[in-house]
């Protein structure tokens, strides 16, 4: 760009660039744009329409308005599945978050030997295939010869018939979920490394002990990560499926019939696709509301360090 030509050339040059940029932008993003329309937006609209019909492979399709949603309110099994899911998430997410946070805080100390060993040990179970882990845990939770009850027996506790007892099946699945906290743990570990040292030094000069430092420095400083882990944790556990499908098939006595398992059955076992779509939309709305509410709340107590 010569300085002399600038007044004349610049506008058209940049206009040309702008048009060219727009063209290239759309060329580069075209795979996603196609995917967005074909795999997300289109199906989303289709799902909304399906939820207002009685679509099933077996019957002629009719528009039924909000009938599916009315049925959902009356559906006893659906209520049970919601309760099971909330119970599971309510137990596994807070427990998992606390364990991940404590392990990360302990590992973040400067006087720890074998840090990379511990880091791998805590992380690796979370990337294991869920099907293999589920089958392993059926064996671990086996009432007589399983590892868990053998260990409890050592402490003179008679372990329950985990997956065979409606009162204990969900707890068994929660126990299994606690070994899969690796991602949360790594997020906490990275967040802890971002907390400035001088804050701890200042707290020490003020005579704070380890517990006080944890609650008054660590927790406020990494609260965005704690918050992120909690939200993602709830969103994921509301969609728990594979474990229950393989380990308990929703039983015993529907005690592990989780929401998505019930949705799957409605769609692919009973072919009530309209009803299942209505269920999917309810889940979607719950997830959106949860995200929005928690983000709102978080702005009050989450400390975003600069």
């Amino acid at each position: 760009m010569g300085a002399l030509n600038e007044p004349m050339v610049k506008p058209s040059f940049f206009k040309g660039m702008r048009g060219r940029d727009t063209l290239w932008f759309y060329i580069f993003i075209s795979p996603w744009l196609a995917g967005f329309l074909l795999l997300y937006f289109g199906p989303m609209i289709a799902s909304l329409i399906l939820s207002l019909t009685n679509y099933s492979v077996l019957l002629p399709t009719k528009f039924v308005g909000l009938y599916n949603f009315e049925q959902m309110i009356k559906d006893q099994l659906l209520t049970i599945s919601i309760w099971n899911t909330v119970y599971y998430a309510g137990l596994s997410v807070p427990l998992g978050t606390v364990i991940a946070l404590l392990l990360a805080v302990f590992l973040n100390r400067e006087d720890i030997w074998g840090r990379s060993f511990f880091r791998s040990a805590y992380y690796i179970p979370s990337i294991m295939p869920i099907v293999a882990v589920s089958i392993l845990w059926i064996w671990l939770l086996q009432p007589r010869y399983g590892l868990i009850n053998s260990f409890l027996n050592l402490l003179s506790i008679r372990g329950p018939n985990w997956l065979g007892d409606p009162a204990w099946a969900k707890t068994g699945l929660v126990l299994m979920s606690l070994t899969g906290i690796g991602t949360s743990f790594v997020i906490f570990l990275a967040a802890l490394q971002g907390v400035p040292r001088h804050l701890y030094e200042a707290a020490e000069l003020d005579g704070a002990n380890a517990v006080q430092k944890f609650f008054n420095v660590t927790v406020p400083m990494i609260s965005p990560s704690i918050f992120f882990v909690l939200v993602i944790g709830f969103i994921n556990s509301f969609q728990v499926f594979t474990q229950a499908y393989i380990m308990t098939e929703g039983g015993p006595a529907d005690s592990t019939l989780f929401y998505v398992l019930y949705l799957y059955r409605q769609a692919f076992n009973y072919f009530k696709m309209g009803y299942a779509s209505a269920m999917a939309w309810f889940l979607f709305i719950v997830i959106v509301i949860l995200t929005v509410i928690q983000f709102r709340l978080s702005s009050r107590w989450v400390h975003y360090g600069s």
């Binding site: 289109g42 199906p43 969103i235 769609a267 299942a276 779509s277 999917a280 889940l283 959106v288």
Partner: peptide
Amino acid sequence: TMMLPHHVTMIPLFL
């Protein structure tokens, strides 16, 4: 779209 649960699109995609 990262927020959208797979289960919403699962049924129409299957069809």
